[in-house]
Amino acid sequence: MSQSNGTAQKGRTLKFHILRFDPQLKGDKPRMETFEIEEQDSMTIFIGLNEIRKKYDASLQFDFVCRAGICGSCGMVINGRPDLACRTLTNTFPDGEITLLPLPAFELIGDLSVDTGKFMRNMSERMENWIHEEPDAEPRKLTVLEEKMDPDVATEIYELDRCIECGCCVSACGTARMRKDFLGAVGFMHVARFEMDPRDKRTDEDWYDLIGDDDGVFGCMSLMGCEDNCPKDLPHQNRIAYLRRKMVSAGT
């Protein structure tokens, strides 16, 4: 049986190279620090970083919440790729060298901790990421049957609703790095999600108002960093292309 339980590489020495910088501290300068720890069975970067904090440096900053790959807190650049640290097993690095950088494109809190929350709240406000009913719609009575929905449509909405706002797509995007106001794939994914939701009554013109410019969908240069680094494998390329076609037909 193929019960690997994380191939045992116990005893190997892992080298964590971590960017250290606390912008709160006056005079602090960015630098790389290396920590060596012994690898354990099924060790993840989550476990490794906690061990470093306990044993070597209690001031090391990083963010984990669910530690199960579902909350999106622990996005960081792992050997050059933005990914979720909590579900990255150390045994996936054959040479045992692990370089960790904070996600770029977000405000740095300290070391590996960045403020994705602020970015995402702004994005949600900007895209108005909620169901827009008809302006004069009466609130639906809660005692009556819910409005019906095509089961396949519900499934398709969920496919896009799986985004966990980890920020990996934004950090992986050269465009977002160069242009501060560029919406980024996370925003497009939410727009695509609400655009396909029959409960949301926004029209193509409404969507054009939100994303019909170079900070929006026309700013996307199709670098595909989002598509190739999304921890949830969301269909970024396909959905952005769809929005682009839709917005061009709305705008011409």
């Binding site: 054009y208 019909g212 410019d213 929006g216 026309f218 709305a250 011409t252």
Partner: peptide, 11 residues
């Protein structure tokens, strides 16, 4: 009313 130009230029 948002400008239609970004759409046209992109196309």
């Amino acid at each position: 009313v948002k400008s239609k130009w970004p759409a046209r230029l992109d196309l």
